[in-house]
Computed example of a mutant assay.
Amino acid sequence: MRRIMIAGALATLIATPLLAAAQDAVDTRVAGLRQLGAAFKNVNDELKSNTPQTMILQISARQIRDAARYQYGWFPAGSGPQARVNTKAKAAIWTQPAQFKAAQDAFAAQAAAFMRVTATGNAAAMRVQAKQLGEACAACHRIYRVDDKH
């Protein structure tokens, strides 16, 4: 009986840091994605305006581009649903890494393109590129994010 208790205690000691590390990765990912969402909101709000503020769009574009660069580190092994952490990320991220990276690359390319377009100050071109950027973001969500609307 004592051996079982010792084994259980050791298992808990070993598992606790692993679960904490996985939750830390999820917390970092969530924080980054919330910042990304705020930047998208700024873009959408400005582009709905009759007189969009180019400076706000450029700042938001830089934030989106930076998030697109950081996203590659937001999904480390062991930070998915199999780790029993609170995440909306689907296991397909880790079981289909090449496809997930392709989706990340598509988003990163659209983020870079949007940043370039904001430098022109052309609101019509920004609206077109913002739509393509949003579509790249949504495409990834459809496949790799748990839909909590159900």
Rank of each mutant, 00 (worst) to 15 (best):
F75V: 02
P76E: 09
A123E: 09
H141L: 02
R29W: 06
A108E: 07
K149R: 12
A119N: 15
N42R: 00
I64Y: 02
M115P: 03
A83L: 05
V117I: 14
A103M: 12
H141W: 01
F100I: 06
A39Y: 01
P17A: 03
A139K: 14
A138D: 04
I6C: 02
D148A: 07
L133C: 09
M126E: 05
R145F: 00
Q129H: 08
F75L: 04
L19N: 11
A111M: 01
A136D: 09
Q35S: 01
T28E: 03
K88H: 08
A136W: 02
A119S: 11
G8S: 14
A39P: 01
D24R: 09
D148C: 07
Y70R: 08
N122L: 10
A138H: 01
A91G: 11
A7V: 09
F40D: 00
M126A: 12
G80Y: 02
L57H: 02
Q132D: 13
D147K: 14
Y70L: 08
R29S: 06
R3S: 05
A130Y: 00
N50K: 12
P81D: 10
Q53E: 14
A109Y: 11
D147W: 15
A125Q: 14
F100G: 12
Q58M: 03
P76G: 03
L47M: 07
K90M: 15
A123S: 13
N50R: 04
G32R: 09
